[in-house]
Amino acid sequence: MAFTEDKLKKVQEIIARYPDGKHKSALIPVLHLAQEEHGGWLSSETMDYVASLLKIEPIEVYEVATFYSMYNLKPVGRYLFEVCQTGPCMVNGSDQIIDYIKEKLGIGVGETTTDGLFTLKTVECLGACGYAPMMQLGKHYREHLTKEKVDQIIEECRSKATSLN
């Protein structure tokens, strides 16, 4: 894998935020970029590439990538449903929402639909407790979830995927 010119420029911009010699600080933001570029997950080749970009050892990348929950170390579907299940969301019915998504998509937590479109992941508190139940989808939150809203979101993703193909 290799970044485009644009992405490489972005990496330089990130490195410039830190004092000279402190470019390792760019690791977490650059891993986010790499994950976006590489279909939403980090393969070992991707991590090695990031190590070479930042001139650090691959192990330094692996230890970070395995620590933070937003990095996916296995392939994920095009649309990743990250549903919060912590206390305040549970009180507002997140368990039922998770069950409904499982039923609707025919997958368990951590699994991907056979068409490669959807992955379901449960996550811990995302800071949307007042707007529960909720999930993260890409860059944004989907809040006040109901079964109807889940149906709509799934439809929306399917039609987006069709128009992209």
Partner: peptide, 18 residues
């Protein structure tokens, strides 16, 4: 990148150091 512990100030600093 997803870690409650980084709200602890020294963990936050470690994280900011990559």
């Amino acid at each position: 990148a997803g870690a409650y512990i980084c709200g602890e100030e020294t963990a936050l600093i470690e994280s900011l150091e990559g």
